[in-house]
């Protein structure tokens, strides 16, 4: 179990993590979702004992990430953002390098290698240089390198960056397989379709955790209604008092009100051609994400 208690971290005036508390259970895939600069990488690095919290503490199993950083590191795998392997080494050389790095026992190393080859389908390419692999295969190799020492916890920072949907799907199938075998995975991703398939999501904005639930519950617990209006009268609605959220996208306005308009109001807007039609939208994870950005979008 990972226990994050009241973790804060600042860089100069910038508060990257603001009093974050989370409990991550074993055999779960937990997604960290938030805009660029919300503090995702900062939190990830602290979990891997690469940097220390200003306040609060993190325990991975019984180990404190500050006091027992080497114990922590031997239990975890960490794939940093845009993690790249040694492109001039072959798949096998890369894997063996990581095996040596983590000082895995010589006995059983070959079996582990074979296991990883089998699960990643990289066996036929074991003597190919990493630089000559496709994006999807590179990703799988990077993952394998981080699994060679059989970690209990895996931290992935935007692992599917720049990878096509089919390879991404394959990647997550592997991760889910590992999860079912007992691995705990903590991951950040800009792909919300991926995030929808995780066990739990932590929404992080401005260094704070806003919600920590299953993806379904995050969407369900969003009580506001969102309407899509066929209208470009952005300014008209932007001035209204009870508009909580407004976003213009491709000639349609996405809007939520603190109090839903009455039937007469809709009719007036329709009659006055303020809008040309409207319907209520089923809320998705993307809507939840976008609505956290309270500021009004600048017009182009």
């Amino acid at each position: 179990m990972i226990e994050i208690k009241g973790v804060s971290k600042s860089f100069g005036d910038i508060i990257a993590n603001d009093n974050i508390s989370l409990q991550i259970m074993e055999s779960e895939i937990v997604g960290l979702i938030g805009p660029d600069g919300a503090g995702k990488t900062t939190l990830m690095r602290q979990l891997c004992a690469l940097s220390h919290p200003d306040q609060g503490n993190i325990h991975i199993d019984a180990y404190d990430t500050v006091k027992n950083q080497y114990e922590v590191r031997s239990m975890i795998g960490y794939m940093p953002q845009r993690f790249s392997l040694y492109p001039d080494l072959t798949i096998e050389q890369n894997l063996l390098f990581f095996a040596n790095l983590f000082n895995t026992p010589k006995k059983g190393r070959q079996e582990r290698l074979e296991q990883l080859y089998k699960f990643s389908n990289l066996k036929p390419f074991q003597n190919r240089q990493a630089g000559k692999l496709s994006g999807g295969m590179k990703q799988k190799l990077a993952l394998s390198c981080n699994l060679i020492h059989t970690p209990k916890y895996l931290f992935l920072d935007e692992p599917t960056f720049g990878v096509d949907p089919v390879s991404r799907q394959e990647f997550w199938e592997l991760i889910k397989q590992l999860r079912d075998e007992g691995l705990t995975v903590f991951v950040s991703t800009p792909y919300l379709d991926e995030a929808n398939t995780f066990d739990k999501l932590a929404l992080i904005f401005n260094g704070k955790i806003l919600a920590y639930k299953t993806p379904e519950k995050i969407v369900d617990s969003y009580s506001d209604q969102i309407f899509v209006m066929q209208s470009e009268n952005y300014d008209y609605f932007a001035k209204m008092q009870n508009v909580k959220y407004l976003y213009l996208f491709n000639k349609e306005l996405y809007i939520s009100f603190s109090e839903a308009p009455r039937q007469e109001e809709w009719q007036t807007w329709l009659d006055n051609k303020v809008i040309n039609g409207y319907n209520q939208k089923q809320i998705t994870l993307e809507d939840v994400f976008l609505m956290q950005n309270k500021h009004i979008v600048s017009q182009i």
């Binding site: 938030g34 805009p35 660029d36 960056f161 800009p190 994400f289 976008l290």
Partner: peptide, 10 residues
């Protein structure tokens, strides 16, 4: 690539 969902939508 490499930017968050809000920035992508903008």
């Amino acid at each position: 690539s490499g930017v968050d969902p809000k920035v992508r939508k903008d």
